[in-house]
Simulated scan of single mutants.
Amino acid sequence: MGAEILFVDDNRLILEIAKDLFLERGVSILTACNAAEALELFQEKEIAVVVSDNHMPGMSGLEFLSALKEISPETIKVLMSAYADLATALAAINSSEVFRYLLKPWNEEEVIEVVEEGVRRYHLMNTVRREDDNVLRSLAQTIELKDPSTRGHCDRVAIYALKIAEYMRLPKEVQRQIKYGSWLHDCGKIGISEFILNGERTLTDEEFETMKMHAVWGADVAAKAELSAVARNIIQYHHEKYNGTGYPDGLSGTGIPLEARIVAVADVYDALTMDRPYRKGYPVPEAREIIRRQGGIDLDPEVVEIFLSVVDKEQIPLAKENQEEIGLVLSHERGTPHPHGGATA
């Protein structure tokens, strides 16, 4: 199903009029009687244009559209009001990124024209974003060329992270940004030499400190590229640990952004199951046990349980057989030098 049009108004008669107006043109729209009901629809639907009344019980239309900046920033936002309130109109445009401000009672042709223009604008942005998908994914693959042992790592992390996000029923736009952040979570490694990345030896303290900087460098690149806060959080914080011993900022628990906690689990799991210069990948049962043990230590325990349940359900093949010791591996994968060399910090 394609992107939808949503009208939000506490007056059910207004919603019925809107339905009839668009049905005459062969278009079925979604409706909601308040902001809370509308926000639930954003969990399940891709919504191109939302037209919201301002004066509603509970969350006002202006507050609702402001909330959408994080939940679904691509949605084209139209605010309606029965009052010619210049201050509200300016606030809507400045703080909520509202596309148009309409007065009630509305002019039917104006409403149709604004919505149709909004839909066109939405699809144009999506076309640009699809081109960005190719650019971002290509960048991730270019970064992986610096370390051949990580080939396909970013794609797999994105797949695993999205399975968690889907299970948690995060908004579609947040899932999209998690995909971008997963692709680019190691983009800061573009500035790290292959000598450090590919070494089959223990890193010096100085080399390890350089390795850890990739999270900050990557986040800086993402900020300059104007990527979303969700994607930037993943790039900067995917090496933070649940117990506060990670980097770069020593965040802990739920102080670590959720999207970073999700990608951390996916990142560690994929690193465990893939061959690296200093060891073979671990078979699924051992990798699962390592991940399970790290719930509440390095990794968010709730995200770990969700991920393991998804792996069980989907039967995702992740690992190759090996007979290596596993006791020291996880500390290495999460940013500690491995005693036998190399690093994937």
Rank of each mutant, 00 (worst) to 15 (best):
D133Y: 07
T88C: 08
T88D: 06
L65C: 12
E131C: 14
R156S: 08
E108A: 13
F64Y: 11
D133G: 02
L79H: 00
L170S: 01
L62I: 13
I112C: 05
I112H: 06
S66Q: 12
V157Q: 00
P73I: 08
V78A: 03
A91R: 15
P73R: 04
K179C: 06
E166D: 06
D147F: 00
V128I: 13
V174A: 01
E144P: 00
S149A: 14
R156N: 07
L162Y: 02
V51T: 07
E63L: 11
G181K: 00
A92H: 02
R129T: 14
V119M: 11
T142R: 08
Q177E: 12
L136A: 05
G61D: 03
S95H: 07
A82K: 06
A161V: 00
R130P: 07
E110R: 13
L136W: 08
Y101K: 04
L86P: 08
I93E: 03
R137V: 05
T127H: 10
H123S: 13
G152H: 13
A165N: 02
S66C: 12
Y160P: 00
H153A: 03
M168D: 03
Y101A: 04
E116P: 05
L65G: 03
V78Q: 02
R130S: 15
K104R: 12
Q175W: 05
V111P: 04
L103C: 03
C154Y: 00
V174I: 14
C154M: 04
